[in-house]
Amino acid sequence: MKKHVPLALFVVIVMGLPVLLKNPYYIGALVFVGIYSLITISLSLVLGYAGQISLGHAAFYGIGAYTSGLLTTRWHVSPWFALACSMVITGILAYAIGKPVLKLRGHYLAMATLGLGEIVYIFFNSAVDLTAGPSGFGQIPRLAIGGLVFKDDIRFYYLVWFTVAVLLALVLNIINSRIGRALRSIHGSETAANAMGVNTASYKIQIFVFSAVISAVAGGYYAHFVTFISPTTFDANTSILLVTMVIVGGMSNVWGAVLGAALLGTLPEYLRRFGDYDILVYGAIMMVIMMFAPGGLVSLAGLVKQKFVGNLSREPAA
């Protein structure tokens, strides 16, 4: 049962935060943190567990947002169905992209995913007839369950963080299982993993597609929350920001992914008075973390972790 303590604590915090934070403005910011968390949790499986670098995840985020946005505004598909469609379409695209891309490693993989992200970004900008080009489009309908429309920040807050909690529960089960070990073995040594009977190529694709599909959900949420989308939200800077969130938090730990999203996702709020120069702060944080704590903030809390969580993880499954 101890295993469930962190998750339970997490749910309590998430439920309680809106009560503490009276300012609706902060709730809005936390919605974005939730949307980012969806991506970073799934991205940490690709990056930290399976050890595959992706600098193009904003593309899947964007494809999800555009598919859901276009289906609902142009063809008046119901938002939930549109969201499901965007998951399927992004999944298929991610499979088609992942098949050749994941054969690459290291720098090659990084550049290839960066290039793919850039191509998708160029497409959003250039396919004006479909995407309305650089100016983007609005009036995307909101999500609703029966009569309950997720129209204000606080309702959307609960929707997003409910999704994050569900994802976390599923992912935490996965990482402490044969599949989680298989993913980490790919990171450790692909050759040895293969020789021990792990179908590394298949696992790499599966986890890549999974994280793309979750990113599409995040994109769909973004579209239906903001009700307006344009290409700049999904450019290479976003891809890099997502990877930075995962790394700053601690890439081989899903809680790190949430922590990273929370820190860097709210950073713009603290840096408001710096205006556009927040880019300098981002760069500096990234540089310092990479140089002095490549394991991320979670690894800095290593001492504490060994005392508490370390013992927890040792308990056999109750």
């Binding site: 996965i174 299982s177 044969r178 599949i179 070990r181 298989a182 980490r184 073995s185 990171h187 450790g188 040594s189 050759t191 040895a192 993993a193 021990m196 009977g197 792990v198 599966q206 081989s252």
Partner: peptide
């Protein structure tokens, strides 16, 4: 010796059972 330093000793050996087990995601 190609063992996985990103896993505990037990997890390394548990990985060996991968191909003898079948539970899906």
């Amino acid at each position: 010796v190609e063992i996985f330093d990103n896993m505990s000793i037990l997890e390394n050996v548990m990985l060996g059972r991968h191909c003898r087990t079948s539970c899906g995601a």
